[in-house]
Simulated assay, not measured.
Amino acid sequence: EALQMWGGKADAMCGQHHWPVWGKQRIDTMIRQQRDLYKFAHDQTIRLMNHGLTATEIAETIKLPASLEGAWHGRGYYGHIRHNVKAIYQKYLGWYDANPVHLDPLPPLESGKKYVEYMGGAAAILERAKKDFATGEFRFVAQAVSHLVFAEPDNQAARALLADTFEQLGYGAESATWRNAYLFGAQELRQGMPKAPPRPPMPRETLAALRTGQLWDVLGVRLNGPKAEGKHIVLNWSFTDTKEKFVLTLENCALTYLEGAQDAKADASFTLSRSILDEAIAKQTSFPEAIASGKIKFTGDAMRLAELMGLMDEFPRMFEIVEPRRVVVS
């Protein structure tokens, strides 16, 4: 469509994640090559899927044709063909590659301990891994030593070797996003998880741009299911400025909502403007303050809302990636 609309007409093209391109002929060539790049990646991934190749095998097999491989804008400086074909595979087949070994594997911490045991212990792994590192077998060294780091996260020799391996993989990565991932992993192993200030409240302007249903969805994501076991809370909401009505229900450890309705048997009913809800979420006011000032009116047991909010998780700004999490999450 872009070629039909702008072919032979456009003098300059500015695309996402790319520098401007000038000249009608260069622009036409780039649009055609970009069109064929995406079509090639999609169709060839599907073709190889139908030959039984898994996502990892497809990434290892697929090669761009010379006409696209040699195009400056087709190089993997940002996205990469080896990365993108796995996303195409997952779109159609999901994460499971039909090999039952991968159906229900142990998580990294538990499997790491067993791999270390099977491979003869930390010293044996490090001795072999150093030899492979010296010969440039960085991809497998990363896989092997990662098991040791998860089994023994305080093993400084293992952390150092894995960090050095990630660094080499980063140096060799054409894709900037891959390079960033490798080098960030190396930094975590050497310096620990980056320290970050607490997550600030969501900006008032962002909240105002969200539909009310989206705010309830955010609460649903924050709900700690195990803490909500056995709880049943029903709250009515009526917004005076948007004329919206909702029933918010906690049941079976899930938070759902129904728009355009009210429940006669609700634990509590709240009447307020949507703007006051936004201010409360942005921590510019609190529910008790808004109730005291008359900006929120309620009937029933208002403490049921406090009980619901007490079941919400606060998400950390940072967490471990290449080593076991230090804080248990349930």
Results as ranks from 00 to 15, higher is better:
1 E>R: 13
2 A>P: 05
2 A>I: 08
10 A>L: 13
13 M>A: 14
15 G>A: 11
16 Q>L: 15
22 W>F: 15
23 G>F: 05
24 K>S: 05
27 I>Y: 07
28 D>E: 09
32 R>M: 10
32 R>Q: 07
33 Q>E: 10
38 Y>T: 09
38 Y>R: 12
38 Y>S: 09
39 K>C: 08
42 H>D: 09
51 H>C: 08
59 A>I: 09
63 K>T: 12
75 R>C: 03
77 Y>A: 02
80 H>I: 01
81 I>C: 03
83 H>C: 06
88 I>H: 01
103 L>V: 00
107 P>S: 06
111 S>E: 14
114 K>A: 10
120 G>P: 04
126 L>Y: 08
127 E>V: 02
132 D>T: 07
137 E>F: 07
141 V>Q: 05
142 A>T: 03
144 A>P: 00
167 E>Y: 07
170 G>K: 07
176 A>F: 11
180 N>I: 13
183 L>Q: 13
184 F>A: 15
186 A>H: 05
194 P>I: 14
195 K>P: 00
195 K>S: 14
206 T>I: 10
206 T>P: 00
207 L>D: 04
212 T>V: 13
212 T>D: 06
214 Q>T: 09
220 G>V: 06
221 V>E: 11
227 K>L: 15
236 N>H: 10
243 K>F: 03
247 V>W: 03
248 L>R: 05
250 L>N: 06
251 E>P: 00
256 T>L: 04
266 A>V: 03
270 F>K: 06
280 A>F: 01
282 A>K: 05
283 K>M: 14
287 F>C: 00
287 F>T: 11
287 F>P: 08
288 P>T: 08
289 E>M: 11
295 K>G: 00
298 F>N: 12
299 T>L: 06
300 G>P: 04
302 A>P: 09
305 L>V: 15
307 E>R: 13
318 M>D: 10
318 M>P: 00
321 I>K: 11
325 R>M: 15
325 R>L: 15
325 R>W: 11
330 S>W: 04
